[in-house]
Amino acid sequence: MIDVQEVGRTFTIRRRTGLLRRERRVVHAVQNLSFTVRAGEFVGYLGPNGAGKSTTIKMLTGILAPSSGRIQVAGLDPARRRTALARRIGVVFGQRTTLWWDLPLRDSFELIRHLYKVDRVAFRRRLDELTELLTLGEFLRTPVRQLSLGQRMRGDITAALLHDPRVLVLDEPTIGLDVVSKAAMRGFLRKLNAERGTTVLLTTHDMGDIEKLCDRVMLIDNGRLAFEGGIDDLRATAPEETSIEDVVARLYARGAPAAGQRQARGQ
């Protein structure tokens, strides 16, 4: 469902070092990255800040074009077939909303129905279903700006699923959520994956998400794939550690920062 072959993405940073002198530096945000995600899988994508997670997500969704290599998502090349791909995948960014800030949630959904050309009957059925599963009912008429973070997040997930995508890409969907909302969100995602067979790729810094949801984990560091395998394989990399958080911390530390490279991505 997702196929990434030897993908690289470089950024050229220009910095003024003197009055006329300019320094050019090439930063490899992602290099020689290859992985596949099969249909129906639930895969966690881990990595420290600045490791290349977001760059990868942006390449998978067609926001950024890769500098080298080949990507296929749901049978399409994301950068070339961006709008066609948008109808086949759902994307949720935990840190920013895709909803219309000043409109009631319901109106945002209606607008998404038009943009994605979902037919009225299918839309109604799907919205009712999601409303029930995510208990959206009571705030469908509330403007998005007045929603709490947890409510807004549920709204965003719904928005990403109204067109029934085959692949769901989640970039830190549980960031900032309280324990109860987090548990509800995880329960929903697990069900979605199990019952509808939706393929899910999730980035997170919350190890609970990884333990409770993912069949498989990929860990990226300094733009390269540093680990790939099941949760048990992940544990086996540091058998002396008891919590998964410590195991991952070790893996992050192992591929310790090649200094400048990491901070350079935050520009």
Binding site: T61, T83, A84, A86, F93
Partner: peptide, 13 residues
């Protein structure tokens, strides 16, 4: 603001 990224993930020009 990152708003342009959001436009790029929607199925419209």
């Amino acid at each position: 603001s990152g708003g342009f990224d959001i436009m790029l993930i929607r199925p419209a020009a």
